[in-house]
Amino acid sequence: MQVKVNKQDRKYEGDPQMPLMWYLRDELGLTGTKFGCGVGLCGACTVHVNGKAVRSCAMSMKDVAGQAVTTIEGLSPDGNHPIQKAWRAENVPQCGYCQPGQIMQGAALLIENKKPSDEEIKSTMAGNICRCGCYQRIFAAVKAASKEV
């Protein structure tokens, strides 16, 4: 099957049931997509499929055949997407492990809804766990980025 990852066409011939997350991480070495729970509960593995945020652990290769996947590595060539800049300005990360997933979720929200309300930010980001507890800064960064895009 064919899949486009960060604008590049890829051929995949393995187990069609394999979650996209393991394909990205183990086969392509795109380890910015993190493994946190494997069952769609934490958001660490969030990527974009056709511009929409999905949990790559809960999507099989069969599901993404022919689709366009964007990972954190493909979000911005120089790492200066407004949301990445906001993240740095707000000093969001602690350990950093959940952060690519948070950023991908936040970026997808801003594609869909350029001016989300506070409640919309919280409800959209609620699928992404941060065990270090960076939530108030995550919220502030998404809000700040929404003023930039």
């Binding site: 380890t31 993190k34 990972t71 990360p93 950093g96 690519p100 950023i103």
Partner: peptide, 14 residues
């Protein structure tokens, strides 16, 4: 900071 926000920071799982 930069590596984390770009998905380049390396953890053991990676």
């Amino acid at each position: 900071m930069r590596d984390i926000t770009m998905g380049k920071a390396m953890y053991a799982q990676d």
